[in-house]
Write a protein that binds this DNA or RNA. Structure first.
Lengths: 209, 209
DNA sequence: AAATTGATCTAACATCTGTTCACTGATAAA
DNA sequence: TTTATCAGTGAACAGATGTTAGATCAATTT
């Protein structure tokens, strides 16, 4: 099963995947990559590409899978670190920022191609983000005892904020990213506070905003 | 000044602008457009393009200007309708949704190319959105009497939410858009409530989120 | 040991791209 | 009326792209 041949094939497959991810930078979206560029970066002939993927779209969807995997690792790591106690929001934001810094290529794909040009792509990415959102909504439902609709909306708002800021943070220095993280934390706290406030609408007064 | 010649030139210039805007659809970002495609759609020879713009980038930046104009019209219209009274958030969201429905091309550019591939583009769009954010922060500062930092952050959060949802809403039916608008309103109310709550942190209890 | 498989290569194709050049002909200026 | 301007044209270029076809030759299977 793990013959020399299969191993070598897997190796150049990874080379292709990494070639694509490494080519993604602020000026280069996945769809501006050409098959030939990727093959060149992976040091194989353009024609060899077809031994691994039917076309660039298939490579791209593979990368999106990779992105989903990364998001799930993020959640797992967040849960672990939360067991030690501390502010949920702060810890989550810090982990998120770490992840985008250490997985730039994949997050670029997720955050940029999110409103991108290919329907299949957008749907695949939306699916991954929806998983993420659903897990967050679940947490809010169980731990924070919010009504379902409110939990869903709070999760939606939070994920939109975090991913939007994340896109901005992708190419900042560690210091700038830390600054943005503080803003993010405050914005998320607004949302959390607001959600619990909306839950008990018998507050002092009803802000007519 | 307004000779036959100048008039005709302005007309084909508009034709080029509209050709580009009309080609933007869910599957086609501005940077996937070719000069030749745009010229074809505008019914001129590819070479004639250069009589109007130095290259596609210049056309693109012109479209971004168009987008800024649209955003300013949106604000003006919102202010007018607000004079008649009503929920600020509801009115604003409804106007926004109307605008994206009626200016799909321009908003696609603003919302898609926002995290796009060209630095010049991203900066130009960020500039327009920052104007928008600044006007909103001003309003929150003056009308809602929030401290500056909080006003800035609230505006930031709101704009991120609205533009993120806006991108999703671009190609929905009117009914689906209206549904999304309701969710948007609730999410924005969370933020507004949360911001005023954070302002007076002596509330009943401090949620350790 | 012989036969087969399959990941890789080079060469070649048709097609699209941005851009240049010299030209035309109606409008504008003299 | 003569002259100059200039938006628009078609032909042609060099380069990049996706994709096909055929050959190579080491790893695998028989």
């Amino acid at each position: 099963m793990t013959g020399i041949r299969a191993k070598q094939k897997e190796k150049t497959r990874r080379a292709l995947i990494n070639a694509a991810l490494n080519q993604l930078d602020p000026q280069t979206s996945f769809f501006s990559l050409s098959l030939r560029e990727v093959a060149r970066e992976a040091n194989i002939a353009p024609t060899s590409f077809y031994r691994h993927f039917q076309n660039m779209d298939e490579l791209g969807l593979t990368l999106v899978d990779e992105g989903g995997l990364t998001l799930r690792q993020l959640l797992r790591q967040a849960r672990q670190r939360l067991a030690d106690g501390g502010s949920v929001i702060r810890i989550s934001v810090e982990i998120f920022m770490d992840f985008i810094a250490n997985n730039r290529g994949v997050f670029r794909l997720l955050l940029q191609e999110h409103s991108g040009t290919s329907k299949e792509f957008r749907l695949a990415i939306a699916r991954e983000i929806d998983h993420f959102k659903a897990e967050l909504a679940d947490y809010l439902l169980n731990e924070r005892k919010l009504p379902e609709h409110l939990a869903r909306l709070q999760a939606d708002a939070m994920v939109r904020i975090v991913f939007s800021i994340g896109a901005d943070a992708l190419d900042l220095s560690a210091a700038e990213r830390a600054e943005l993280a503080e803003d993010t934390i405050l914005e998320l706290r607004m949302i959390a506070r607001g959600a619990t406030a909306l839950q008990k609408p018998k507050g002092e007064y009803n802000d007519p905003t």
